[in-house]
Amino acid sequence: MSYVQVVNIDKSFQGRQVLKGIELEIEKGEFVTLLGPSGCGKTTLLRIVAGLERGDGGKVIVNGREIIEGQNKKEQNIGMVFQSYALFPNMTAFENIAFGLKIKKIPTQDIRKQVEEIMDILSISGKENNYPHQMSGGQQQRVALARALVVKPDLLLLDEPLSAVDAKVRESARILIRDVQKKMGITTIFVTHDQLEALVMSDRIVVINAGEVMQYGTPEEIYRRPANKFVAQFIGTYNFLPSSLVGIGDKETEICIRPEHILLVSKDQFPQIGNAEGIKLYGTLENFYILGNTARAEVLVQGRTIIVDHLNRFEGPKFALKEEVGLLIDKKVCTILGR
């Protein structure tokens, strides 16, 4: 039996169904991300798992214990970090972190030891006597994380905790959260709408759309083998091409190919490279721009724009706009999506 079980959860708000028969199983120590566009129901699902909201049907079991809304959460032992952090403004960082331990009636000297330990892990030592408003967003976020972690929860819930900090802090926070989670072995559910965050941090990702699970798999699976068109469109970039253009699959299917799997070559070189397995297409270069470490070309093939990405190397191939170019696609990288 899985450590966390979400069984057939339904939820409606004022007649609008936001969750439809959600089923999830999470193993002990796993980091699972609920990923989806805003309004897809991911936060509602998290709140139901937390016992802050009641599902219309179904149940949630964490470590063999059913989660019931409205019950005192002392027994429940679930830690949560809120989007707004919800630090207690009248308490210092130390008091905030110690709060859960005090509720558990842990002896004072043990509280001090445990709080100092977690503050050290999250590198916020020295901020003990600061009030929330005296700390930066990144520090507040770590205090909120420390407050949830210090009680050694069975399950840690993170509700978009990275959305309120700036890009640089976010990048380091991703790694920090991931490292601490692995080190402490705490089963974690993370909610985000940021696919990069999900791919970087998760053991498994649950892609949710309109209250339904679209796909549940490792970042690798989600990225390489999207189960349906929604996932394919939502995660990363895909070229969606009719089967007739690439000459595989039957007429009804759509072929999707990642831009980085297509090779852009000059027209003169084209006949000599590739093998029988390769698909060769001719087109004209419509647009070319740099994204950073990658560069992107837009090639018009039979009236369709195909996006091609490649590493932005110093001595990369240079093509003029409107020049005729060749595209080389390996058949192995073509994903066939059913209608």
Partner: peptide, 15 residues
């Protein structure tokens, strides 16, 4: 203050 979030945060800690 964000009354609702503070309440929920305290409740999650067993308060």
């Amino acid at each position: 203050i964000n009354v609702k979030a503070l309440t929920e945060a305290a409740m999650m800690l067993g308060c």
